[in-house]
């Protein structure tokens, strides 16, 4: 009975406290939120603009600090709001937190999970702004990490907004992890009877002479060769100078390699061996935005010759 009276009193006190909130206080709270948001946007825009004029290395370094700065603004805003609330409700705050807990539990739990995900991304850095990542079903360059969601630009120039809570359930692959160069895996398929040694030499020379390559002692070019019953796969693993040139790099290698292959009479695998009709062309952008199952899918574009060879791969 005593508890019932106390509970009744508490609710009345809470209602009383809610009625006592002045308009000015509400305006202050809204202003704090707006100010934090505007400051966050200004920092994002200014630093992003600045970083685009910098070197490739500098661009990524500058962009890395954007989420942290924004988080500081939001943290300050949150602290101020909390202080305001505490000054209004005082001991009744426990009741309010109970209500808040219920709201989070039933209504906005996803939003809360995204928010926590944003904090984890800011400090743990599973990926950073400027990285090329696979998240959920998408692959692209991280352009913005907000408190709720991460924005990616896919190779087809689609902007994908992925909720931050994905990091709790999905494995995330970052192709470059904070550096400008990124490994690109380039596959070429040639007929089984081809001179593999010559083909490997051509592929190496094509890769290392590309204007997009970054090659050093720590970032070497690796060539692999695997023979299949009716064709041979040549695989080059090399670093592209700027991750934004990933597909140009691959295209450049494919184009030049096939010109050289033809000079040396190295042919693409022929489908007629098995009398199987050609498989329909796969739309490039589908590959680029599809859920990642390996690094091969990140290295999408190719020349006409490559399309031929890919058909045979899909036998």
């Amino acid at each position: 009975m005593v508890d019932g009276i106390n509970g009744e009193t508490g609710r009345e006190q809470l209602l009383e406290a809610l009625r006592s909130i002045e308009m000015q206080t509400l305006i202050d709270l809204i202003l704090i939120v707006i100010t934090a948001y505007i400051l966050g946007r200004i920092v994002t825009v200014v630093l992003s603009k600045l970083s685009e004029n910098m070197s490739r290395e500098g661009r990524i370094k500058v962009k890395m600090i954007i989420p942290a700065i924004r988080f500081v603004f939001y943290a300050i805003a949150f602290y101020n709001i909390l202080m305001e609330i505490f000054s209004i409700f005082g001991p009744e705050l426990f009741l309010l937190t109970g209500l808040l807990g219920a709201a989070i539990g039933f209504g906005v739990k996803d939003l809360f999970a995204d928010f926590i995900g944003g904090i984890v991304i800011t400090f743990e850095k599973p990926y950073q702004i400027g990285d090329k990542i696979n998240i959920g079903n998408y692959y692209g360059e991280v352009r913005d990490i907000g408190l709720r969601a991460t924005k990616l630009i896919t190779p087809d120039d689609n902007t994908v907004t992925a909720p931050n809570s994905l990091i709790f359930n999905e494995a995330i692959a970052s192709g470059n992890y904070g550096v400008s160069e990124m490994m690109v895996v380039i596959d070429l398929y040639i007929a089984g009877e081809s001179d593999v040694k010559t083909a490997m030499r051509i592929l190496r020379e094509t890769v290392v002479s590309s204007k997009y390559i970054y090659v050093s002692e720590k970032r070497p070019v690796i060539l692999l060769h695997k023979a299949f019953p009716f064709y041979t796969r040549l695989r080059a693993k090399a670093y592209v100078n700027d991750l934004r040139d990933e597909f140009e790099f691959e295209s450049d290698v494919h184009t030049k390699a096939w010109i050289e292959f033809q000079k040396k009479n190295i042919r693409a695998p022929q489908l007629h061996i098995l009398n199987i009709p050609p498989v329909g062309d796969e739309y490039e952008s589908d590959r680029a935005t599809r859920r990642n199952v390996g690094s091969d899918q990140r290295t999408g574009t190719g020349s006409e010759s490559d399309s031929d060879s890919r058909k045979s791969f899909e036998l």
Partner: peptide
């Protein structure tokens, strides 16, 4: 041998 950087051409088949 002076100027050995002239011993390659940066293109496929240039090495």
């Amino acid at each position: 041998l002076d100027n050995c950087h002239f011993l390659y051409t940066r293109k496929p088949g240039g090495f």
